[in-house]
Design a protein around this nucleic acid. Structure first.
Lengths: 200, 200
DNA sequence: GCGTGTGAACATCTTCACAGCA
DNA sequence: TGCTGTGAAGATGTTCACACGC
């Protein structure tokens, strides 16, 4: 499931001739060919033996499985550098995501416009989530504010959160949280680098 | 290995009394207590039966295993919103990472100062990597430039890359790349949200 | 008694190998 | 012949359960 978005990306690149084989896709995605076939067979039997997969059809089926046939409504909380970067990220509209609200606590930032959206005070957050039917919230605040924001979000009924703050937020079990943490990634690189320098 | 950075974070929070049990840590990290013990037992036997782990000692051992007893030198390529966010990220110094270079291709950005560093033209990249002994490079460019930058980096002898651009960069096998992609994360959330709305 | 360390059971993920179909 | 779909084997990761030391 984690790899379907990856395949989707690769399919976007190689839609030249309208067809791909599992081994081509595997090479692009940097994984094993058998893995690709297993993954894709879960969606159903959309490959043709001896030929491969039809790119556009496969893309549609992956999108359907991922729930990307509908547009999900996003709110971003914390419009610092990171929040701005996320708001400016181009791969949203057209990928099935639409930003319907930007929130921050800093008076200086409230009212400024980022990507055709006006930054709103964080006290509007709960109401906006309900009114604008926000599906997914993105937390891009500093560590200190993250739990607080998460609590507000949970109370407003949000069920999906993408958390960029470097803490593990405590939330009810029915709220799905994904955590993206820069320092975790660096530390994993550090681990491997350390080991390879030691000659393992 | 992926979880050690997480434990490290949790230990930073709960260093009140100087001791933790595996179940406390597990609760904080949101994982199973047995998993914590297994993970920690790989580092060696640093727990005391009937008592728990000594926080400071455990932090040190985790850092040692992750290779954080030395300072790694970072270069960030692409100083847009994302690059700036990364450069401003506070958890670097004191966590074992030091930024020694910021690079961009945009003339308007070159020469500006971000966090006490001057942004340099990308043509300096190869030389700087060699001279300043850069250990890890962070790619925060748009999709189009990412592969090009990655090639330059590989040729300069970099062995660790953290890639935020939404493509799978092609590199020699001896270069370790970690990929962080926002749309992947959102699509995984989309998948689960989609399924839960269908009532699974 | 309490909490670690760890073998053994269990579950999941990955890879291999090959039958079957265009 | 070429490539998919898939059972079976193998590797890896997770959880249980309990012996052992404080």
């Amino acid at each position: 499931v984690q790899r379907l978005p990856l395949y989707l990306h690769c399919l976007d690149e190689c839609d030249g001739d309208g067809r791909v084989s599992s081994s081509e896709l595997a090479a692009q995605a940097g994984v094993n060919a058998a893995k690709v076939r297993k993954d894709l067979s879960y969606l159903g039997s959309y490959g043709v033996r001896g030929v491969g997969y039809e790119v556009e059809h496969l893309k549609f089926e992956i999108k359907r499985t991922l729930g990307l046939t509908q547009v999900w409504r996003l709110a971003i909380v914390g419009i610092g550098n990171l929040g701005t970067a996320l708001a400016s990220y181009d791969g949203f509209r057209g990928q099935g995501f639409e930003i319907v609200g930007l929130f921050d606590i800093d008076e200086d930032r409230i009212g400024t416009r980022v990507m055709e959206q006006t930054v709103e005070p964080i006290r509007n957050l709960a109401a906006a989530v309900a009114e604008r039917l926000v599906d997914i919230a993105v937390i891009a605040t500093p560590r200190e504010s993250a739990q607080e924001v998460a609590d507000v979000l949970a109370e407003s009924g949000i069920k999906s959160i993408l958390n960029f703050a470097p803490i593990v937020v405590k939330l009810p079990d029915d709220v799905e949280v994904r955590r993206v943490d820069l320092s975790t990634e660096l530390q994993v690189l550090s681990y491997h680098l350390h080991r390879s320098r030691l000659g393992v």
